[in-house]
Design a binder for these strands. Structure first.
Length: 771
DNA sequence: CAGTGAGCGAGCTTCCGCTTGACTT
């Protein structure tokens, strides 16, 4: 028999707390929620005032039975789940499912894991807040209704296994709408004029001063006119202004800002950041990684102060109190910080070390002084013109937090460092070294990265720290969105330059529009989005979550009844569900791209039965149209006529090799050559399926054959279906198109046919393949 | 849900938020 049983959400937390409390306390964890709505039907009795049907999911049965056992042996049960809506619900579900006796059950909450905080919590115990629980039930039931009533409409009208939801559908909408902005974006150009001046310094040393004109010219003619004028102009410094400036640190990390910075500074995906952070948390190196709070505990603040004084000195300390800006933040935890700030570096693999270092720097910098700068702005007048050149310099007066950390920005333009200016005075005359007007193009709005999408969702108050990473993975799994690299295109631009009194005009080229790790909507994502926006405008509204959150808050405050709120929502929502089901058609996008020059027939891009296609000709008459599947990443809305026609150029027949045809085409894994029903991948970046010739294809076939020779470890004369091969994960046995693992310790080169057959027989039958 | 075509029928998919392992390829 133990006196006290404390139940927290996470096992890592349980371990830490158990150390603080005496042997009178046993600490167990619930591993998050232990009950959820049944998945049979809706799990909600609509006609019984939306009564939820809760069950313990299969993977939680063991946790629950363990807890039940512990409860039996405890005098008092302390429910210590997080202090937010979900945490309160977890406590309630625990007390219901474990049939806890009210007399012996206490609800406690704490925000930091220290002995004092926990003892304080124990002294200030309370009961379960049913209003808060009801707000959670409203949230849960609403999400189930939206998800489980809309998704089946998509299965029937669009494609099986698709999904819709309050969070994921808005995430997709953001990406789709951004893509359309980009498709419709019309780039314009203007001329940016830059100059380099020589600064006289009594003949000692030559200084150069870079400046930019305060105006851009709309066309080549005006730019040329200006540069012509510069030939004989006199350049005079008309003004020198010095101004102090300061920079302040960013608050310590939340889940969302950690994901953003790890993406920008370390190149981690959102999921990768969370996996690495989880390991650091479990090793006791950082505080909890799923949080929306920017607060640091008092103990942490004291520790940070000590570290800053020790490492950088007293002048660098500035303890700050950050306030959260994100909508709907629940702040049940601290911000993400090192568990022990005195630990400057950790053991572990490279990713763990780098993420830890990032977290350490951000937490420490957040409590450091502002950086102080001096900015200098120099104006240079051009005789006979009203435009002026501006040169800017920046000198650091006091580094402050920049000694440790500078937040990166999503803006792709380069960040400016310190620029030192030579000594300058008003009235100085500066001879030019060069002046050039370069044609610059306006850029379309940036596509989302995983991390910038998380940032946007957080701003809208949509989704929670624990769901950002899974949401991003869901919308990709459904095929709504793809994360991709895209090569840029060459673009020509004009440049007019003046040097030593001579004007030169040139046309240069630059690569533009290259993308890496960006989210692109796929055609199915756009189709589903348009369908949902048309029929479920309320749920797809960017403010829907914010407005239901307000209602959840009222429920939590005891000012509203949760089932009333759900009923109001459901009445109009369900009507739309019924109406949508009754309508037959889903609008399929279709665009006329132009006319095929060789046949004179119209060319379309459209959504067909098995996905997006290009089509030449019409279905009418006795002739049938020709179809070609769009390639991955090609968009119905942006496909050009030329791209469509190119799709019909494959497969190409290259000729005959060893009495068999060689053809090239492009498939699921990229471009390939096909010969004697065997596939040979073309090399990315080297071979082009539209231009490759027979000789090169034969070369690829020979190369592959050579490689395959090394692939075979053993074959058996008695049974051609068995072979031992060398694969990506080492040697394995291949038999009738199935692969089998070779047991540890066995030497693959000396296995006999009988050995192989035994291994095959001993391998348990595989479970159904996951998609 | 292209056009084609072996036909028929049954069963399955899905939400958001809490939380960890257990599994392969």
């Amino acid at each position: 028999m133990i006196n006290n049983l404390v139940i927290v959400e996470s096992p890592a937390k349980a371990k830490t707390i158990e150390k603080f409390l005496g042997k009178d306390f046993k600490v167990k964890s619930s591993m998050g929620h232990i009950r959820d709505l049944s998945k049979e039907d809706l799990g909600i009795d609509i006609n019984n005032n939306f009564k939820p049907r809760y069950i313990v999911p299969a993977d939680k049965k063991k946790t629950v039975s363990d807890l039940r056992e512990s409860v039996k042996n405890a005098k008092t049960v302390w429910l210590a789940s997080d202090e937010d809506r979900e945490g309160e619900a977890i406590a309630w579900h625990l007390s219901e499912e474990l049939k806890l006796d009210k007399e012996n059950t206490r609800r406690i909450v704490f925000h930091e894991i220290t002995k004092e905080a926990i003892l304080h919590a124990i002294e200030n115990h309370r009961g379960i807040d049913q209003h808060l629980v009801d707000a959670q039930q409203a949230r849960r039931v609403l999400d189930r209704l939206v998800g489980f009533e809309i998704s089946p409409i998509l299965w029937r009208k669009v494609k099986p296994s698709l999904s819709a939801g309050r969070v994921q559908s808005v995430a997709v909408r953001l990406i789709v709408e951004r893509e359309r902005e980009i498709i419709n974006f019309k780039s314009t150009s203007s001329y940016r004029v830059t100059s380099v001046f020589e600064v006289p310094d009594n003949g000692k040393k030559v200084h150069f001063l870079k400046a930019e004109l305060d105006e851009r010219f709309q066309d080549r003619k005006k730019a040329l006119e200006f540069v012509e004028k510069c030939k004989d102009a006199i350049f005079t410094i008309s003004d020198v202004v010095k101004k102090p400036a300061k920079k302040s640190p960013s608050p310590p990390f939340t889940t969302s800002t950690l994901q953003q910075e790890a993406s920008r500074k370390l190149g981690f995906s959102v999921a990768q950041t969370m996996t690495v952070a989880q390991r650091l948390y479990e090793a006791g190196l950082i505080t909890y990684m799923r949080t929306d709070s920017v607060n640091l505990s008092n103990t942490a603040l004291t520790a940070v102060e000590q570290i800053i004084i020790k490492e950088f000195g007293k002048d660098f300390v500035n303890i700050r109190n950050y306030k959260t800006k994100s909508k709907g933040a629940q702040e049940a935890h601290e911000a993400i910080r090192p568990a022990y700030l005195s630990k400057l570096a950790i053991e572990g693999n490279n990713t763990e070390k780098r993420l830890y270092e990032l977290i350490w720097k951000r937490a420490v910098a957040s409590q450091m002084s502002d950086a102080r700068l001096e900015k200098t702005t120099v104006s240079i007048a051009v005789s006979g013109r009203k435009e002026i050149f501006i040169a800017e310099g920046e000198v650091m007066k006091f580094e402050g937090f920049l000694k440790v950390y500078l937040e990166s920005s999503d803006d792709e333009s380069e960040e400016k460092g310190e620029v030192l200016l030579p000594p300058l005075e008003t009235g100085m005359k500066l001879p030019y070294v060069s002046i050039s007007a370069t044609e610059k193009f306006t850029h379309y709005p940036p596509r989302f990265t995983e991390a910038s999408l998380v940032k946007k969702l957080e701003e809208l108050g949509i989704g929670r720290p624990s769901t950002y990473a899974p949401t991003i993975s869901t919308i990709q799994q459904r095929g709504y969105v793809i994360k991709e690299e895209r090569p840029g295109k060459e673009r020509r631009y004009n440049i007019i330059s003046l040097e030593k009194g001579a004007i030169k005009e040139a046309v240069n080229t630059e690569i533009t529009g290259a993308e890496k790790g960006k989210l692109f909507p796929d055609n199915i994502g756009m189709l589903v989005n348009d369908f949902l926006v048309e029929h479920f405008a309320e749920v797809l509204d960017f403010n829907f979550t914010a407005s239901v959150e307000k209602e959840f808050d009222e429920i939590a405050d005891g000012k509203a009844n949760w089932t009333d709120m759900i009923k109001r929502f459901y009445l109009s929502f369900h009507q739309k569900v019924e109406a949508t089901l009754a309508q037959k058609e889903v609008v399929k996008p279709e665009r006329l791209l132009g006319t095929d020059p060789s046949t004179g027939k119209p060319v379309y891009s459209r959504m067909a039965r098995f996905g997006a296609v290009a089509q030449i000709g019409e279905t009418t008459g006795d002739e049938k149209p020709r179809y070609a599947q769009l390639r991955k990443g090609q968009n119905i809305e942006s496909l050009t006529l030329q791209e469509a026609l190119d799709l019909f150029k494959l497969p190409r027949n290259l000729g005959i090799f060893e009495d068999k045809e060689v053809a090239v085409s492009t498939g699921r894994f990229g471009p390939y050559a096909l010969h004697d029903s065997k596939f040979y991948s073309l090399l990315k970046g080297i071979d082009d399926p539209y231009t490759i010739e027979l000789d090169r294809a034969i070369e690829l076939i020979h190369e592959k054959r050579e490689k395959d020779k090394n692939k075979i470890i053993a074959v058996f004369s008695e049974d051609k279906e068995v072979s031992i091969l060398n694969g990506r994960w080492g040697p394995y046995i291949s038999y009738k198109k199935e692969n089998y693992k070779i047991p540890r310790g066995a030497d693959p080169t000396s296995l006999t046919h009988a050995d192989c057959m035994k291994i095959i027989a001993d391998t348990p039958v595989k479970k159904k393949k996951k998609k």
